[in-house]
Amino acid sequence: MINVVADVGLLCLLLTVALAIVCTRSPLSLVLLSGIYSIALCTLFVILDAVDVAFTEAAVGAGISAILFFAVIRPEDEPVTAFSWPSSRAILLGLGVGVLLLAGTLDMPMYGDHLAPAHQHLALRFLGQSFEEIGIPNVVTSVLASYRGYDTLGEVVVIFTAGVAVLILQPDNKKGPAKPGDRDRFAPELMGNPVLKTVLLRMIPLVVLFGLYVQFHGDYGPGGGFQAGVILGAGVITYGLLSSATRLKRIISDKWVTLGMALGVLVYGLVGVAGLFLGANFLDYSVLGPTQTAGQHLGILLIELGVGLTVSCTMVSLYYCFKQGES
């Protein structure tokens, strides 16, 4: 009963925020509303028992998208009229597509139906035998890292590609470490704000600690490489937001961040190649350790480290590039 009430309630919240987004035109309120949208979506994922997905959506929605969006929008984009109804042409086309889709949904299984075909085939084996074969309670992590580990390699490469893309798109691509002289023109005087300084400087170690907890807790509860990478990235970026990007660059220079991005992908790839050299197929961890489960444990631990490294370095690199583009 609680599940149904929560589900329906959150769906209504989601719809109202989506309608609000359709109508607003000012970029700042768009970004704020999309922040609320991602929070409501994350809560809905918790209701639908997708705990890992809620974790990722929360970390990404609250951690990264705000920073990226705020680095791009400017006050002069604020339109005169705050609200506007989309053009009738778009609405008609949208409704047309909607009606077509509605017909498609009539044969779909009901919400929560145990006999739905999706649960009969692959899921039975993953839920049934993943503990003997891989030995990890969190089935999502075992499927993510081992059964479909190659998808996750593709995913890490997607994040790496995004990092490379933003590096290429960086306007003036001087790559040297931040010279002490070049003071960040936009050094916000947050450091001057005693309240923020005292609270947040003590928060950063807490966030980093929580990030590491999530990194290694991925096997037993919700968590894993991606979520940990985003949290660690957010923790490091907090110092940048507090002081300035150039001061953060003196601690963690561009070069190391780019190196970390590339190394994470290589760590993941080399774990797979190690399987090749030991005579098994690519990304087969069973040969890495004495027994199958020991090998799987080691393999999953290593690739999660690779994922965490790439994702956190990419987040920091994104922050540098967007700050670089601004000043």
Binding site: N193, V195, L196, V199, L200, M203
Partner: peptide, 13 residues
Amino acid sequence: FFLSPMTAHALAR
């Protein structure tokens, strides 16, 4: 307890 008043302060400022 610590963070939301801090955020409100930063916003007010």
